[in-house]
Computed example of a mutant assay.
Amino acid sequence: MQQLSLTFEPGLAQRSRCLRDHMATRIYSRGLVDVAGKLDMSPSKMTEKLAGSDSGGKSRGMTIDELETYIQRTGDISPVHYLADKYLRDPAVTQQEALAKLASLAEVIPGLMAAAGLQVAPVRRGR
Rank of each mutant, 00 (worst) to 15 (best):
L4V: 10
D21F: 04
K49Q: 10
I27V: 11
S29C: 06
M62T: 15
I109R: 01
E48G: 02
T7M: 10
A36D: 01
K49G: 00
Y87G: 11
Q2A: 12
L12P: 00
G75L: 07
L50N: 00
L99D: 14
G52I: 00
V93M: 15
G52M: 03
V108S: 02
T74S: 11
T94D: 14
A103P: 01
D21N: 06
D54F: 05
V80A: 13
Y28L: 10
T94N: 07
R60H: 13
H81F: 15
L19Q: 02
P122C: 05
A115N: 03
K38R: 14
M62N: 00
R20E: 06
T69W: 09
P91F: 01
K45N: 12
S5L: 13
P110G: 04
S59H: 11
A98T: 14
R125W: 10
D90A: 07
S42W: 07
R125T: 12
G52N: 01
E107R: 11
L102H: 06
A114S: 11
A116S: 13
R125H: 11
E9D: 08
E68V: 12
S104C: 08
M62L: 15
D40F: 11
E48N: 13
K49S: 06
E48D: 14
T63H: 02
D85M: 08
A115C: 06
L112G: 00
Q96M: 11
R73N: 08
I77V: 15
Q72D: 14
S55E: 10
T74D: 04
S104V: 07
G37W: 05
A116M: 13
P91V: 04
I77G: 14
R26V: 08
D21Y: 05
F8P: 02
E68A: 13
A13I: 01
A24I: 00
Q14H: 12
G75D: 07
T47W: 09
M23A: 10
L112T: 01
G117W: 00
Y87A: 05
S29A: 15
E97Q: 14
